[in-house]
Write a protein that binds this DNA or RNA. Structure first.
Lengths: 337, 337
DNA sequence: CTGAAAGCGCTTACAG
DNA sequence: CTGAAAGCGCTTACAG
């Protein structure tokens, strides 16, 4: 393997000139820069990662702590992991993956051995031991999601509150007054990520603010439970004319199956908006209006904040990513009674 | 941050003694070892990762290349990524995650900058550009899955052939003669991982060897397609009495729903075995007999092979992980005509 | 059983 | 615009 000395010799310059020519950290004569670049390419020179870490101030590695809980929805989780890795690469950073059993021990290890320049915390839960840890370690950190107490932290997340209001307002504008929200399994609200709670609470408060009745139900993910939950949500005289769904893909598919079975047409009899979804709602039949959760949007913002602050920790802040409405034809004016 | 010099001073020894005491690479007096260990703990000493990489011969990092194709089944994929990380940690290795757009460029980068000691290739496809690359780079590599041409490679995978025969033989022993296999979507067979093909081909050849008719069908994953595929598989006079499923979780759930709708009882009217599944088939109703694909088993073997060979590439070989039958009550003797 | 020292391959003040 | 040199914090022959 070629070293910086080999490149220096080939280009006829000193190793410091090679270093500066390649990093651009001081001005170099064009002809020199070219010779160095040519020599580096023809020798297939790649700087030694360990030497850089030792001599320099950066490792170009971030740790990503992404615990898989038993109720984690794998496709969304994967999408976020990938989006973080992709965003990091744009800034020349690699991702070191820390798994659950390593959630704390691993964080200490990689931070204090200076293997990583920063930490990205994924899928933060309401009370998350990783938070106190990174604060103690003093390692620059950005959190994707918002814990109960975000004090002192840099957090990034979709503005689920705004997304929920956007859905409700859009339906209200079309004359809908009776809306329902179908959410995740109970367990998710009891001790999980906090965004389902934010959607639920915003749904209840914002419908109330508008003087509208708001029905909410959780649902387990199996098809029987979904059908039962939906039946309960639609029971009684004052049947909702609009449904907001914040739940996983298979549940939303089952809802559409069940509405079809019950001869409830979308959007003629029932308008539907899918909120905070990471999957493609145009593949459903019918395609659903959606206010998506876009992993790349959130993760790009998170990585940008982290990179910008290095080598210091980022300033504490909660950055909300603005929601975006995508109409796909599943919302219509409220049907005449 | 404490360095090795701080530990040496605190323990009243030289830095080489600290290094050896901590690594155990040469014999050290018990009392010295204890003093060094105490000093290291009380100072919170963690060796500098970059310094180790530069001075030593190992980085204690493996690259994991785990591309997410659009037909990747995320839960299984996640399970494998996690199993690799967990297995690596047992040998004091961390995992650097390489995503798809980095599948080749990233591999070259981390290998030639000597960031990683080895590479683990996940979800290898039939023809995979990553294979030629790692062979060229000369970086120690182990492949999870088996490409078309495994020559020169160390590969690890569940013995899907044996698993399929095990399923067929188990059914044949109970008197079943008409068996069907429900597989993945077509696309998977056309250009994907090779194990679905191995299951399909073994199913067809082994039933033929036994002189039994074997029906095979692919299926898309949406509920309508699954029901149609199943109906086709069960059509005609000679209805199969046993079904082997090698497809994703939601498809298997739909199959059970559909059999229930058609009043076909499991196992009384129809015996079922789930093959190569990564999910929990005891959660279905009824619970299904399964020959599971256990990510930990495969990944442990892969990491063991890689670690054992370092710093050299492992010897070329294809290591098959033996299948294991788990009875859960979904197989019964063939019903009387 | 232990120590003094070379050296891994870079980055970055310090000098000119 | 460029170079000589110190130094990052380890590991590991070399010596005793």
């Amino acid at each position: 393997m070629a070293t910086i000395h080999d490149v220096a010799r080939a280009a006829g310059v000193s190793i410091s000139t090679v270093s500066y020519a390649l990093s651009g950290k001081r001005s170099i004569a064009d002809s020199t820069r070219r010779r160095v670049a040519d020599a580096a390419v023809s020798l297939g020179y790649q700087p030694h990662a360990g030497a850089r870490m030792l001599a320099g101030t950066r490792t170009q590695i971030f740790a990503l702590t992404a615990p898989l809980r038993h109720d984690t929805y794998a496709p969304a989780h994967m999408a976020f992991v990938l989006a973080v890795a992709t965003a990091a690469r744009r800034h020349d950073y690699d991702i070191l993956l820390l798994t659950e059993d390593e959630a704390t021990k691993g964080l200490s290890r990689v931070a204090s051995s200076r293997l990583v320049d920063g930490v990205i915390v994924l899928d933060v839960s309401v009370r998350d031991e990783r938070i106190a840890l990174v604060q103690n370690l003093g390692v620059p950190t950005v959190v994707i999601g918002i814990p109960d107490d975000p004090a002192g932290l840099a957090c990034v997340d979709l503005d689920f509150e705004a997304a929920t209001r956007l859905a409700i307002d859009g339906l209200a504008d079309r004359g809908h007054r009776r809306m329902a929200l179908l959410g995740h399994p109970d367990e998710i609200y009891e001790r999980g990520s906090n965004f389902p709670i934010r959607v639920r609470d915003t749904f209840l408060s914002h419908t109330a603010d508008l003087g509208l009745p708001g029905r909410f139900s959780t649902s387990e993910t199996d098809s029987g439970a979904v059908r039962a939950a939906l039946d309960a949500l639609l029971a009684g005289d004052e049947r909702p004319t609009a449904l907001i769904m914040h739940c996983q893909e298979s549940v939303q598919a089952t809802v559409l199956d069940h509405l079809r079975d019950r001869k409830i047409s979308v959007p003629e009899d029932m308008s539907i908006i899918s909120v905070g979804s990471t999957f493609d709602t145009t593949k459903f039949s019918p395609a659903l209006d959606v206010i998506p959760l876009i992993p790349a949007a959130t993760c790009d913002a998170a990585v940008d904040i982290l990179v910008a602050s290095l080598p210091d920790p980022p300033d504490p802040r909660v950055q909300y990513v603005a929601p975006e409405y995508r109409a796909n034809g599943s919302v219509a004016p409220v049907p005449a009674p």
